[in-house]
Structure formats: C-alpha cells, structure tokens
Simulated scan of single mutants.
Amino acid sequence: MLTSIALIILMGLSLAFIFDKLKLPRLIGMILTGIILGPYMLNVLDPTILNISSELRQIALVIILTRAGLALDIKDLKKVGRPAILMCFVPAVFEILGFIILGPKLLNLSFLDSAILGTVIAAVSPAIIVPRMIKLMDEGYGTKKSIPQLILAGASVDDIFVIVLFTSLTSLAKSESSFSLNVLLQIPISIILGVLIGIVIGLILIKLFKVIHTRDSNKLLIILSISFLFITLENSLKEYIPISGLLAVMSLGATIYKSNNDLSIRLSSKYSKLWAGAEIFLFVLVGATVNINYALRLGLVSVIIIIFALLFRILGVYLSLIKTNLNKKERFFTSLSYLPKATVQAAIGALPLSMGLSSGETILTVAVVSILVTAPLGAILIDNTYKKLLK
C-alpha cells in the first residue's frame, strides 16, 4: 500500500503541475493519474487502497464543505434573499430533469436510473467554486451585490440537496419499492436536522474553545473528527430518521464563522492546506475506478447528454434570478459559475456501481466525463470573465 500511496502522490502532483502550467484545472491531471495507474491500464495500485477509496473520497468531500462553511457569511445571504434559496435547488432540479428526458433515449436507462444519474451529475464542484469565490471576495468583485456569496452558498447547499436526493433514489432502487411521499419528505427533514445539528455543535465548540485554550491545529482535528461523526450518525440513523451529515458539516463551519470570524479565517487557511493532500486522493482514486474502454465507447453520447443537461441548468439559474438587481452580465457570470463538476461526482460517482446497480458503470463513466468536460470549461470561464462581467 505504501508504494501505491507514493505513486498516487508523486504522479498525481506531477500531472497536476503540468495541467496547471497549461492553465487547466489540476484535478484533470489527477484523474488521468488514476486512469493510468488503475486496474484498467497499468494495474499497479494495491487492491487494499482501492477497497477503501469510497471512504477516502468522502473524507475529501467533508474537508472541502467545511472550508466552504468557514467562508460563508449568512448575513450576506439574507441580503440576497429569495434568489439565494432558489439557487440551492432550482438549477439542480432542472439539470436532473434534463437527464430524465434524455437518459432513457441515449443511454438506455430506466427513468429511475436516469434520475440517479442526474443527481450524481447535478452537483456543482466545491473544489472549483469555493477557492474562486473566496478569491473574488478578497478582491472585491461582485461583493456589493453579494454575488460570490450567493454562488458559494447556493453551490454548497446545492451539493447537499443533490446528495440527499441521490441517497433517497438509490435506496429506492435497491429496495425496488414504489415511489412514496416518505421519499419526498426525507429531503426537507434531512436538510433541517442537518442544519440544526451543525449549528448546535458549532455553538458548543465555540464555547469550549473559549474555556479550553489550545492550538488551532488541535481545533482543526476536533472539528474534523466531529465532522466524521456526523457522517457516522447519518449512516447509523438512516433507517429511522434522515439526517444530512454533510449539511451538518457545512453548518458547523458557518456557525464558527458567525461566532468567531478570526478563528474561522485561521481554520480556513489550515483546511486549505489539508485539501491540498485530500484532493489528490479524491481525484486519483475516482480515475482508478474508470473502465477506460467502456468510457471511450460511451464518450460522445456522454458529452451530448451532459451539454443538454447543462442548458437546462442554465435555464434554472436564470429563473432563480428573476426580479433581482443583477444585470445581464452578472446573471451570465452566475450561470457560468454553476457549470463545473468535480468533487461530488468524484465522491459518489462510483457508489451505484459498488451497490450493484445495473446502471452503475454507465453512471460512473458519465460522471467522469462530466468532470473532464465541465471542470476545465467552468474554471477557464470563471477565471477569464469575472473581471469583465463583475464590478
């Protein structure tokens, strides 16, 4: 396993550096590293590390969502109001609808499998969006109308909404039971409970840190451990009551930001360093799960359905921003910022395959293609348009 870890880090960093120099997202190099080292090409990775890859990918998702929470100012969202709420779910719902329309026709999937595919692809990427929106806030672009904050919060909650929906639909697919009101009720209940638990634990930690003085590194370890317990709590209670562990993670970070801004800034910096290592394993390991021959056969069809669904997403963004004070350029920038996919697709894209769903390999392949297409496209568009489209 140690050799595999060394190969993942060294080759992942090397290809990430090359893509960075080409002005493309580093994560593309990391995914290619996984494809090259994985069982469908060189097959040099230890099976042990592949067996725990889903857990490692989930750890990476926890880290990036905590970082998003630590940069999220709820007061800015209150200023935005209704559009902030709509951006959390409307674009994702429209994109899922796009997959439900085309999935059965182009990919031979059932409507349920098409919906599951839609929930995997519909989440935007915190790995692409979080650092870029934080950069915009630091430079002051769009902050007067809280545009970076709107995108940051909307994208983060969008991820949670989609993951909760994904969990509900895959449970439905595995149980082969009929769709019921109970499945629909799980979504708002899990979101509300996740937020409440995150806020309560966040307030307790703030008081604890005031009483017990310890290094920021120790505080990070405590928060990280509690975040993992949120996920454990979600998995343990999912048969009885739905709780979004990931939303609890983000709410905890946002509570720390609201209660102690200086601490959140210091912790955010440390989480950024932690993410530098976590993202390598996240994207390399998802690349390692891809059957390259199957991906090549499905490649063009995947690109077509992804682009079609993105058009639906853009329509959802524009509908969410109706009757706002954003001008045409700002609305266009917001829609561009909602394009990139990477983190969530890497974290959950392989789960349907590991669950034994017949559509698992198709879903994984489309998930990886969506990363390869939209991550560089979204990153390039955000980086090259924000100074022209935002004040």
Results as ranks from 00 to 15, higher is better:
residue 73 D to L: 06
residue 73 D to W: 09
residue 73 D to E: 14
residue 74 I to V: 12
residue 74 I to K: 12
residue 75 K to V: 14
residue 75 K to L: 13
residue 76 D to K: 15
residue 76 D to N: 14
residue 76 D to S: 14
residue 76 D to C: 12
residue 76 D to Q: 15
residue 76 D to R: 14
residue 77 L to Q: 10
residue 77 L to S: 10
residue 77 L to T: 10
residue 77 L to K: 09
residue 78 K to E: 15
residue 78 K to Y: 12
residue 78 K to Q: 15
residue 78 K to M: 13
residue 78 K to W: 10
residue 78 K to R: 15
residue 79 K to H: 05
residue 79 K to R: 14
residue 79 K to L: 15
residue 79 K to G: 10
residue 79 K to W: 07
residue 80 V to H: 00
residue 80 V to T: 15
residue 80 V to K: 06
residue 80 V to C: 04
residue 80 V to Q: 07
residue 80 V to R: 03
residue 81 G to F: 06
residue 81 G to Q: 11
residue 81 G to C: 03
residue 82 R to L: 15
residue 82 R to Y: 12
residue 82 R to I: 14
residue 82 R to F: 11
residue 82 R to N: 13
residue 83 P to L: 02
residue 83 P to G: 05
residue 83 P to F: 06
residue 83 P to N: 06
residue 83 P to I: 05
residue 83 P to Y: 09
residue 84 A to E: 10
residue 84 A to P: 03
residue 84 A to F: 00
residue 84 A to G: 11
residue 84 A to Q: 03
residue 84 A to S: 14
residue 85 I to G: 09
residue 85 I to D: 08
residue 85 I to K: 12
residue 87 M to L: 14
residue 87 M to N: 02
residue 87 M to S: 09
residue 88 C to M: 15
residue 88 C to E: 14
residue 88 C to G: 15
residue 88 C to Y: 09
residue 88 C to T: 11
residue 88 C to H: 08
residue 89 F to G: 13
residue 89 F to V: 10
residue 89 F to T: 04
residue 90 V to L: 15
residue 91 P to L: 07
residue 91 P to T: 05
residue 91 P to K: 03
residue 91 P to E: 06
residue 91 P to F: 05
residue 91 P to W: 04
residue 92 A to Y: 04
residue 92 A to P: 05
residue 92 A to N: 11
residue 92 A to I: 03
residue 93 V to Y: 10
residue 93 V to S: 11
residue 93 V to D: 09
residue 94 F to I: 03
residue 95 E to H: 01
residue 95 E to R: 06
residue 95 E to P: 04
residue 96 I to A: 01
residue 96 I to F: 06
residue 96 I to R: 00
residue 96 I to C: 01
residue 97 L to G: 15
residue 97 L to H: 07
residue 97 L to W: 09
residue 97 L to V: 13
residue 97 L to R: 11
residue 98 G to D: 03
residue 98 G to C: 04
residue 99 F to N: 07
residue 99 F to L: 11
residue 99 F to C: 06
residue 99 F to Q: 01
residue 99 F to A: 02
residue 100 I to K: 04
residue 100 I to Y: 09
residue 101 I to G: 09
residue 101 I to M: 08
residue 101 I to W: 02
residue 101 I to L: 13
residue 102 L to V: 07
residue 102 L to D: 07
residue 102 L to I: 10
residue 103 G to I: 06
residue 103 G to K: 09
residue 103 G to D: 01
residue 103 G to R: 07
residue 103 G to F: 05
residue 104 P to S: 06
residue 104 P to W: 01
residue 104 P to I: 08
residue 104 P to A: 08
residue 104 P to M: 03
residue 105 K to Y: 02
residue 105 K to I: 15
residue 106 L to A: 11
residue 106 L to Q: 03
residue 107 L to N: 04
residue 107 L to W: 01
residue 107 L to C: 00
residue 107 L to F: 01
residue 107 L to I: 01
residue 108 N to H: 04
residue 108 N to M: 09
residue 109 L to Y: 00
residue 109 L to V: 10
residue 109 L to R: 02
residue 110 S to A: 02
residue 110 S to T: 12
residue 110 S to D: 00
residue 110 S to H: 02
residue 111 F to T: 12
residue 111 F to E: 02
residue 111 F to W: 12
residue 111 F to S: 12
residue 111 F to N: 08
